[in-house]
Every structure is written in structure tokens, then in C-alpha cells.
């Protein structure tokens, strides 16, 4: 409850949430919002190819004479699906690995962390390219590859948090009560890492969206679906020489828009989750801030406190 309040108070978070909501709505309502169906073949005249924006096609047409705005709207679906499912996967894997490695430590923990190190040092994008090239360019493959390679940071984060939480006295108390290991992990350690994991997962969504766009831009997107990365790919190959900015700019800006919204949300969550502001029972959990009126504020001491 308290976290929601803090979030609402933070302008960055609210702006980010608003920006993301717009994209989600557009993706959901794509069939109604899009003026044309981007998948349908169209009869075109040479004039229609890369036609600049006009009243009928607000963002102009692409090299096949299709409506750019409609592609942009449908592209939001791919980005969001990839982003959310892949980051959910990496959150799940990363949290599990982190909890196990952190709680049990020892040989199992060490092996898991070596695996994490191994995956971390391999550059993601080339590896993804290779895997996609081998397994094929389906949407499921793309999601799996991004999700299965993106959990390492979460695992490290969770593990380090678990290492500190498991030394805390309430975990010792649970042990002294005779609680089993799964119970200690699920009841006492997991709730302490959830907020961090969520903040990280939100940031991961934007990473996944960028990864999908990169793959598509490099020509490894799902050929049956229009995504922003693929639009960029086409635009880069065919439109730049013709200076058709209306084909290049919108997908690029859309990617920036979504990433920015997620980063704003993620950072806000991070701010709420990370500083452990202890509330004092004498102050009734109210945070104290400066009052602008009354006695002028007394300057703080400089360097006198150490």
C-alpha cells in the first residue's frame, strides 16, 4: 500500500507509467486503431511507394506502399509480448538460481555462479544471432533466446541480497524454531527480495524489447509479424537513400518511448525499494520534510560531522 503511495508521489514514475499505459492500450486496441491491415497485400501505383505523409496515411507509406502508421501500431504488440514474456522468464530463472545459490552456497552455489559468470562474459547479441540463425526465426524462439540469456544479472542481484538476508536475525529465529529450508526461503527470504526483483524485471522488459528490435533490425525477426525492429531494418535498407524519414523515424521513436517509460518506472521502483527508510514509531511513519515558511533554515555543518 505504502509503496503505491510513494510511487504515485514520484512524477517520473507516474510519467513512465502513463507512457507505458498508452503503448499497452494501443497494442490491445490495434485492430480498431489501425486504419489499415498491414498484413493485407495492396495494389500500389509507383507513386504510392514511399509516399510522404498525407491525410489518408498520416505517417506515409513504406516501400511496398503499405501504411506506416498501421505497421507501427501492430508493431507495439510484438514488442510488448516479447518484452513481457522474456523478462518474466528471466525473472523466474534468475530468482530461482539466485535463491538457491545464495541460500545453499557451497558447491551447488559455486557451480551455479560459475555458470552465471560464463553466460555473463559471452556477448549476448552475437550469441543470440547464432542461436536464432540455427533454430529459426519464430517468435517463440526469439522469446526463449532472450529469456534464457537474460537472467544472469537478476540471479547475481538476488544471490547477493539473499546472502545478506540469510544472516539476519529473523532468519536465525526461524531456524531456531525448526523451520525447514524451503519454508525459510519462501517465507522469510523471498519476500525480502521480491521488490528488488520486480524493479529489475521492469528494467529487463526494456532490455528484452531492445534485444528483439536489434535481432529484427539485423534481419532475424519473425518474418510473419511486423515489429519495430523489422520496420527499421526495411527502412534502413530501402528508405534512407530516398530520405523517407517517415518510415525510419516512427519505429525508432517508438522503441525509445517504450524503453524510456520502462526505465522511468524501473528506476522509480528501485528508489522506493532500495533505500531502507526506517520509520520511527514516534513519528507515525510520516516522513519529515522542510517547511518553506517560518524561521530561515539553519545551514548544515560542512565536513564537521565526521
Amino acid at each position: 500500500m505504502n509503496a503505491v503511495k510513494q510511487f504515485v508521489r514520484n512524477p517520473m514514475g507516474v510519467v513512465g507509467a502513463g507512457m507505458l499505459l498508452v503503448v499497452i492500450l494501443i497494442a490491445l486496441l490495434a485492430p480498431w486503431l489501425a486504419p489499415y491491415d498491414p498484413q493485407v497485400r495492396v495494389q500500389v501505383t509507383p507513386d504510392d511507394i514511399l509516399a510522404p505523409p498525407d491525410a489518408e496515411h498520416l505517417l506515409g507509406r513504406d516501400d511496398a506502399g503499405k501504411d506506416v502508421l498501421s505497421q507501427l501500431i501492430y508493431g507495439a504488440r510484438v514488442s510488448l509480448i516479447v518484452g513481457f514474456t522474456a523478462s518474466f522468464m528471466s525473472m523466474f530463472i534468475g530468482t530461482t538460481v539466485g535463491l538457491v545459490a545464495g541460500f545453499y552456497g557451497g558447491r551447488v552455489g559455486n557451480w551455479l555462479m560459475r555458470l552465471v559468470d560464463f553466460l555473463m562474459v559471452i556477448p549476448d547479441l552475437p550469441l543470440m544471432l547464432v542461436i536464432i540463425a540455427v533454430t529459426g526465426r519464430g517468435l517463440t524462439n526469439i522469446i526463449l533466446v532472450i529469456g534464457l540469456l537474460g537472467w544472469t544479472y537478476t540471479a547475481r542481484l538476488v544471490r547477493s541480497q539473499v546472502l545478506s538476508v540469510k544472516e539476519r536475525q529473523f532468519v536465525l529465529r526461524a531456524r531456531s524454531l525448526g523451520a525447514s529450508a524451503p519454508r525459510i526461503i519462501l517465507r522469510h527470504i523471498f519476500p525480502q527480495v521480491v521488490p528488488l526483483v520486480i524493479a529489475q524485471a521492469v528494467l529487463d522488459i526494456s532490455v528484452a524489447i531492445l534485444a528483439e528490435s536489434s535481432l529484427a533490425f539485423l534481419g532475424l525477426g519473425d518474418p510473419t509479424l511486423i515489429s519495430w525492429g523489422m520496420m527499421l531494418n526495411f527502412a534502413f535498407e530501402r528508405a534512407i537513400s530516398r530520405q523517407a524519414w517517415w518510415f525510419l523515424l516512427p519505429p525508432g521513436l517508438a522503441i525509445v518511448w517504450v524503453s524510456l517509460s520502462l526505465i522511468l518506472i524501473g528506476n522509480t521502483l528501485d528508489q522506493i525499494v532500495n533505500p531502507r527508510l526506517r520509520t520511527h514509531h514516534l513519528f507515525d511513519a510520516r516522513r519529515m520534510v522542510a517547511l518553506a515558511v517560518g524561521v530561515p533554515p539553519l545551514a548544515k555543518a560542512d565536513g564537521a560531522g565526521e
Binding site: 519529515m288 522542510a290 524561521v295 539553519l298 545551514a299 548544515k300 555543518a301 564537521a304
Partner: peptide, 23 residues
């Protein structure tokens, strides 16, 4: 704790936190 003893000391050194005011 909470009886204000540290606050008095901080006030007389004028090292109160921002939200503190010597009235």
C-alpha cells in the same frame, strides 16, 4: 530514546537536520 536529548545538542550546535527549526 525519543525524549529530545540529542535534538537539544544538535540545536545548540546548529546542526539540526533540514526539517528541524529552532523556534
Amino acid at each position: 530514546s525519543g525524549c529530545g536529548k540529542t535534538t537539544v545538542m544538535m540545536a545548540l550546535l546548529r546542526l539540526l537536520p533540514e526539517e528541524g527549526r529552532i523556534v
